[in-house]
Design a protein around this nucleic acid. Structure first.
Lengths: 213, 213
DNA sequence: TTGCTTATTGGTCGCACACTCAATAGCATG
DNA sequence: CATGCTATTGAGTGTGCGACCAATAAGCAA
């Protein structure tokens, strides 16, 4: 009756199986946390035996690192698509802030906190975190640079500005696990405010204007 | 020979023993991380049997929460002393930034990341984190309010300003476990810059001035 | 000094984890 | 249809964790 009682083996190509494992691990990492990415948990997810996961990832730590990398990659792509066929830089940046401030982003904030903490003990994960930090920074820097070229933004150093924006976002996301009540609007708006200030934009260009009486 | 081979029991008052346990747990939390606060680890630290720790903390989670609370309390007191007999508010705030930006603060940043993440799974710890967030916010708000009263600072809402400063500090501290190279000065200075801007102070009032040619 | 309260021990249990490896069976290939 | 390669299983190892509890002895009070 239940499909969980599966006896028959399903044999897949190494590439396909590996991808399947990484996908499942990334999903678990994003929803339940990186410490739930265990051989048993992922095996259960795919309805295979734990030994199989070990076969593809002889060290469990590598799977955890891969899970984070994959999840972060995916999030970055929806947050700041590499290809931006149409729209102004301001529009792209505004969309970025909408996504990165919405409640749906909490899961991503949690993942980053998770990874940043766990990387204290796991070198393989730490490497991935450093990689992803660079990737996110570069992707945002690219967008800012494009805006500068188009004359939309004005900043001496797009990279410094993008780091500043990301620092504020990290600070806002830090509370994703504890946040209870609402925050003052001046706090919620900090990321947008920072961007507008550092890019020489008028208030309200990148998001809802501060306080409408 | 070795003092670790201790047979003789040392019987202490419950209050003293409990305090001793919490102190040891706080120290381990600060240096090795909250996941190292285990019955066995703390027992070893005090050269007693694990069962004794269980006796004082029937649930290990409560010990972890207590360890974080104690460590955070201690750090807050050296960072923002409640009693400020002498000196201007600017001086106190400047000292705060020196401490909260120095390399010695990395351990504290790590502890906060640790606690914020772990509180995802442990309700008792989460409560403590929320408590400490409030305590830190209030302590900083008090300092800002005092500065406003004395005419040193100018801000509409000291609490909002203090949250903004703390958000930036959280953002800067987020990388305590991965930081490799140096950061641009404009990033390092973000906390001070934010404070100066939001408090209507001239650049350089609260820390080393930006870029000396 | 004796006795009593209770802080402390030592041992045990069950659980979840990563890791190992010989045996097995799916499936593409001929 | 038979065969060989190898993806997959099943079973077992060792570790560290929290929790539990009866037995023990430290040190205070009588």
């Amino acid at each position: 009756m239940s499909s969980s009682v599966q006896r028959k083996r399903i044999r897949k190509s190494p590439a396909a199986r590996r991808a399947e494992i990484v996908d499942a691990a990334a999903a678990v990492a994003l929803t339940e946390g990186l410490e739930c990415v265990t051989l048993r948990r992922i095996a259960e997810e795919l309805d295979v035996r734990p030994g199989l996961i070990s076969h593809y990832f002889p060290s469990a730590e590598d799977l955890v690192a891969e899970a984070f990398g994959s999840a972060a990659d995916g999030e970055l792509d929806t947050l700041l698509p590499a290809r931006r066929p149409e729209g102004t830089s301001s529009e792209h940046l505004a969309r970025f802030f909408v996504r990165a401030t919405g409640e749906a982003y909490d899961a991503v904030s949690r993942l980053w906190i998770n990874a940043r903490h766990l990387s204290r003990y796991r070198p393989a994960l730490r490497e991935r975190v450093v990689e992803q930090e660079a990737a996110w920074r570069e992707r945002l820097t690219d967008l800012l640079r494009q805006g500068v070229e188009r004359g939309e933004f004005r900043t001496d150093d797009p990279e410094v500005t993008s780091i500043q924006i990301l620092v504020v976002l990290d600070g806002l996301g830090a509370h994703a696990n504890t946040e209870t009540g609402g925050r003052p609007e001046a706090v919620t708006r900090m990321a947008v405010t920072t961007a507008e200030r550092e890019l020489g934009l008028a208030g309200g260009t990148l998001g809802p204007p501060p306080v409408s009486p």
